[in-house]
Amino acid sequence: MTLLQVRDLVKHYHAGGMFRASAPPVRAVDGVSFDVGRAETLALVGESGCGKSSVGRTIIRLQEPTSGSATFEGTDLFALDRTALRKMRRRMQIIFQDPYSSLNPRMTIGAAVAEGIEIHRLARGKDVGRRVAGLLEEVGLDPGYARRYPHEFSGGQRQRIGIARALAVEPTFIVCDEPVSALDVSVQAQVLNLLADLQRERGLAYLFIAHDLAVVRQIARRIAVMYLGRIVEEGPAEQLLAEPSHPYTVALLSAVPEPDPGARRARIVLSGDLPSPSNPPPGCPFHTRCFHPLRSERCRQELPLLRPVGGTNAACHYAESTPSPEALAAN
């Protein structure tokens, strides 16, 4: 069942200041649509600046959208006033890459986790402390930590605190914005396991924003790949990773260094830099770096739309004949 429905989301940032009035806006998100089902994880992946965080932040209204719609459990999120929005925050939460910056250094861990419980009056008196202790335990922390301050904790522990804080209001949906990107690999694995457990136990839905495809495969059943503010391919994780149809997905996958010296895979090294999101190329946003043998004048003029190809949806005019890295290397 659909929990969240996002349609044609656009988020442009306008450069500030009088003299910049004529500068073109940064087209961070340029028409993005997707659904997230109950207790499901949709991963939004892409390289830096592709707009994935902007999607997450506008959906939960940390930033205002430029246009588009988002419907959550039947409610139009972009029409909510402040009071209604505050109520909605009980249902949707966010956790960040750097949990430290989202924790008040002068607030104890207990107070930080209790904040949401108190704002939404989910418990009173001694019950608040009991809930906080329960939440800390649930994320794998000693309940005794409630009296300590954020600086006393490691990156992984802080991420657990951020998760406990988000869980405190019993949400049904959490935007996870690169929650494991800053963590060491052993701690990253712990947090991934924790998120998976919480999803199973609490029926949570995640929008999991990340740049690492292997991490995403571990946690998400569906993946959407973003490039320059648009989703260029979307589909079930296994299909998208095994048989990608969009040239950008193919390149992204082949660039991942796999910890296996035997796996001498053919590699596609893209030429050139990512174009600026304030001046994206016309037509297909990927055409300046695309290696597809059929790439043509059409790519430079006509924007390809997402359409079913193989087991996924891909936005490429020639997605049916996108070559694999091996086929490309053989030529």
């Binding site: 490691s154 052993s186 694995a189 396991n193 495969r217 796999e258």
Partner: peptide
């Protein structure tokens, strides 16, 4: 061994990771 068991892979079956406990 713990490091290797912590790394998510792109190929093979998706299995629960078996990370090292605690932190550095």
């Amino acid at each position: 061994q713990g490091l290797f068991a912590s790394v998510p892979r792109l190929t093979g079956p998706v299995q629960r990771l078996t990370p090292i406990g605690g932190s550095v």
